[in-house]
């Protein structure tokens, strides 16, 4: 077997599987979005751009777009902020490697939980009648807080769970990254009498610029997969307060009479928006890092 054969036979099967599945789903979505197909009836016909034009007049779609954007911003900034603060705290206060590893293990547990499990855990904690959080709030004299039923805080309450899982995970990565940094610039800054937080803000974190940008990208991509958490915790409610795009696409494609064509048009728009957004962020990130 020559080199050429070896390269072909190792790469071809994986490439064919990935490319055909990706192509089938995208081509399928484009094709169905031009029809008026539903799961209820077997008949369908070509309707052109009708579904897309209707989307542009659908206020529920724009509401979902807005919720998705808020979700992205809140979870990405929340995760990174928590991770940076906690990583510096761990880096500065825990010096023994054993204790540091124990803390890292504890912080890794939440991200390994299935999202469905995490969602249940927190729904239980948030419960207005028997949740631990409302009991603690009661001790402080705050009335029962409807974490998941109050439209003004429901999205934030769900975002807390996402930040709990990913922020602690990123903390561990940042703690490990801080350990790899060279000591000289930090010692130089200490000689200049810089405070600890100054050292981190002006010396160590800028040194970690490139990995931090990657973490932002990874989290931004991962935040798009909010479906499981929101589906189990609020189902998009109360009202439409936590209905992100994937939830609305699911609702209209499966639950509301299975309007698959309409949902396909929505997922195509979602695909285009995310592709454009990520290309811009990717380029900006590269420029900023480079």
């Amino acid at each position: 077997m020559t080199r050429k054969h070896f390269v072909f036979w190792t790469l071809a099967p994986a490439t064919v599987v990935l490319a055909s599945l990706a192509l089938v789903s995208i081509a399928g979505a484009v094709w169905f979005s031009l029809m008026n197909r539903t799961l209820r009836s077997p008949d369908y016909e070509f309707v052109g751009a009708y579904n897309y034009l209707r989307l542009l007049r659908d206020s529920r779609f724009f509401n979902a777009l807005q919720i998705s954007a808020i979700w992205e911003i809140v979870t990405v900034t929340g995760t990174l902020a928590l991770a940076i603060v906690l990583a510096v705290l761990v880096h500065e206060t825990v010096k023994s490697p054993l204790r540091r590893n124990l803390i890292c293990f504890a912080f890794l547990a939440p991200v390994l939980l299935p999202r469905v499990a995490a969602a249940f855990i927190w729904r239980f904690l948030y419960s207005p009648s028997l949740g631990l959080l409302n009991y603690l709030a009661g001790l402080l004299g705050l009335g029962p807080i409807e974490f998941l039923a109050d439209p003004s805080i429901a999205l934030l309450s769900v975002a807390v769970v996402d930040i709990w899982q990913w922020g602690l995970f990123f903390t561990v990565i940042l703690v490990k990254l801080l350990e790899t940094l060279p000591k000289d610039p930090i010692e130089a800054a200490m000689l200049d009498n810089a405070s600890l937080w100054q050292i981190h803000a002006y010396v160590t974190l800028p040194m970690l610029k490139a990995p931090l940008i990657s973490l932002v990208l990874v989290k931004a991509v991962e935040s798009l997969r909010s479906f499981d958490l929101i589906f189990v915790m609020t189902g998009g409610g109360p009202g439409k307060a936590t209905e992100t795009l994937d939830l609305y696409a699911y609702q209209s494609g499966i639950n509301l009479g299975g309007r698959v064509s309409y949902a396909s048009a929505m997922s195509i728009l979602l695909l285009i928006v995310t592709t454009i957004a990520f290309t811009i962020i990717w380029r900006a990130g590269k420029k900023w890092a480079g």
Binding site: S25, A29, W31, R37, V221, L245, G253, V260, S264, T274
Partner: peptide, 20 residues
């Protein structure tokens, strides 16, 4: 290409695959 598959929203896979 492999990494970009992670960017694909899961609904964009789910909806067409139901029909197919």
């Amino acid at each position: 290409f492999v990494l970009s598959l992670r960017f694909m929203p899961p609904v964009a896979i789910a909806i067409p695959f139901i029909v197919i």
